[in-house]
Design a protein around this nucleic acid. Structure first.
Lengths: 347, 347
DNA sequence: CTGTTAGCGCATTCAT
DNA sequence: ATGAATGCGCTAACAG
């Protein structure tokens, strides 16, 4: 790898001049500029971002930590973040925490060592995440939380209005005549899972429907476990609910598998609405009604906010947390029995 | 952010000593070590990776460039790469090229500026990628190409045995009685698409079946375009093929949409086998028979090779290119009419 | 307009 | 076992 010095030597100028033509902040005469540019080309010179960062104390790099890249929701978020970052000359380092708090701790530490200028974080489930976020904030490093919000800590955040979104999904089931609706949630230690549960309860209460504990099925985030839980619940056939609301894509997939495993049909035997889309719904059956989050937008907006914080020096932050709540969309398809009115709201 | 100097001051030692306890390369007495560790904890000190890299000329970072994170195949590859890298104390920077050569050029340049020690590359489609890879190799930076191999350039590579894999898929269709089988490919400028086409032709020829040009449908990589192409072909109903083989997931999805749009059924009207899985096949209908690539393994092994190159100093490379070819698996499901024998090979 | 120079934070000799 | 000093490649402030 060639250095700025080699470029300077070849062009017969000082390194200062080379630096000037690269940054463009200081005017350089045409002939010199051309000689420098030519030398850069010939040497295939790539400015050492490491050295530059050390000097300027700016890396123009953001970190984004997500629990699992293979869940379709997250790559979309990352794309949104990348796009927004690129617009401002930043690049993003995407890292998987494997939804594991220990790994998340390592990853955050790594990112801090890398001196990223800000972090987009979708916390791993578990109670230590809270402390990790708190420590992060204490350090003054700008952080924006996405999707899953750690409870009890003041931090900028972007996500859908979980309560309203869940309420919308459940209300749809109610409007389709269901009265005994179960909810399958991820760990309620996650704030957004709580919110979705609240939305569910609100919809039920508004309709005057009871919410006995036996209708709230709390799973962890592993699909297999959700399947097991659902199968157990569904098999106690005496009091099987007529509809099921799943609070995220993994739960939704688990619910569907359980339903199929139990030999049930949807929506005939049990209706299903889930957060997040399960798959290309227009070609596969059963098509699943779902509450769709604007994933790309979430990543994009979160990044805009993060960059704003970075530019305004981060300390302006305290006491003025931003909390963006984006609207989700209800896509009505077959699994919920379709629209009540003949004009379907879905695709 | 605190520096090593602050730690040294608080612990009452020199920065050299702090460096020693951190790296562990030089023995330090217990009492001093403890004081240093305590200072590190109190200051929430994170070693400046930037400065360290500048000094050691090692970033312990790999770059991975992929065309589109939202295609399910790629996140799995990245996970494999991350896991392998982590094992060796490396981290990976995953960046999306948006399957755009221009952006890919920028991204590669960025990665070089960041001084990543090696690059995992899934090239964007288009002819300039070749030149980009050539230039990259010329620079001496270790590169391993995954999945899509740029033709005509000597580079380490890891992918499935595309020809054999495609042949397997097509043979399955032939065994199910199909004689007029069309192939839907991505751009044939991509080497692996060519290979898959070759596998298709080989299977056809072995069965004594003709391969007129009208059976080879070459699309670009955009799903909408694949849909259009397929619909046009399928609607010339007079000579519609009885089966279709799609060479990647995007093509497969496009083919399926076209089939549905045309009001056709699979496998009744037309059978379908595709590279890559389209979705959770055990719960959705129609379930699609597919040639499944070991995505995680591809990422993992490519990273192992890359790290080996890095450790062996890269120059050992020339003239001894590694070309790993992993086996793909045929998952037989409904869209191809199921297994010929009653014992299904698929799940 | 162009060149010179002082660090950025750290790992690493080399003394002690 | 510990510390002092050097320089990695670059930007920015300053001098000319």
């Amino acid at each position: 790898m060639s250095t700025i010095k080699q470029v300077a030597d070849m062009a017969g100028v000082s390194i200062g001049t080379v630096s000037h033509v690269i940054s463009g902040t200081v005017p350089v005469s045409e002939p010199l500029k051309n000689r420098v540019l030519e030398a850069i080309r010939l040497l295939d010179y790539h400015p050492n971002h490491i050295a530059r960062s050390l000097k300027t104390r700016k890396t123009r790099t953001l970190g984004i930590v997500i629990p699992d890249m293979t869940i379709p929701f997250f790559p979309k978020v990352i794309r949104g973040a990348e796009t927004a970052a690129q617009k401002h000359g930043y690049s993003v380092m995407a890292i998987d925490s494997n939804d594991d708090e220990k790994r998340q701790g390592e990853v955050l530490s790594l990112l801090r060592s890398q001196r990223v200028e800000g972090i987009l974080l979708v916390v791993a489930s578990g109670d230590d995440s809270l402390a990790q976020v708190a420590r992060l904030l204490e350090s003054g490093l700008p952080v924006v939380c996405l999707d899953r919000l750690p409870g009890g800590v003041e931090v900028d955040s972007v996500c859908v209005d979980d309560k309203v979104a869940a309420e919308m999904g459940v209300r749809h089931l109610i409007e389709n005549g269901h009265r005994k609706i179960a909810i399958l949630t991820g760990p309620l230690s996650l704030r957004n899972e709580q919110e979705r549960l609240r939305g569910y309860k609100k919809a039920m209460q508004k309709a005057g429907l009871p919410v006995p504990a036996e209708l709230v099925w709390e799973a962890n985030l592993r699909q297999e476990d959700a399947v097991e839980l659902c199968k157990r619940k569904l098999n106690s056939a005496s009091n099987r609910p007529s509809a099921l609301f799943a609070t995220n894509g993994v739960m939704g997939m688990g619910a569907l598998r359980a339903i199929v495993d139990c030999g049930l049909q949807t929506p005939a035997d049990i209706a299903l609405v889930t957060f997040d889309e399960l798959t290309a719904e227009d070609v596969f059956r059963p098509s699943i009604s779902s509450v769709v989050q604007p994933a790309y937008e979430i990543g994009f907006q979160a990044t805009e906010i993060l960059l704003q914080r970075i530019q305004s020096g981060a300390e302006a932050a305290v006491g003025a947390r931003v909390a963006v709540r984006l609207p989700a969309t209800l896509k009505i398809r077959e699994s919920s029995g379709g629209a009540t009115a003949p004009t379907a709201a879905g695709t």
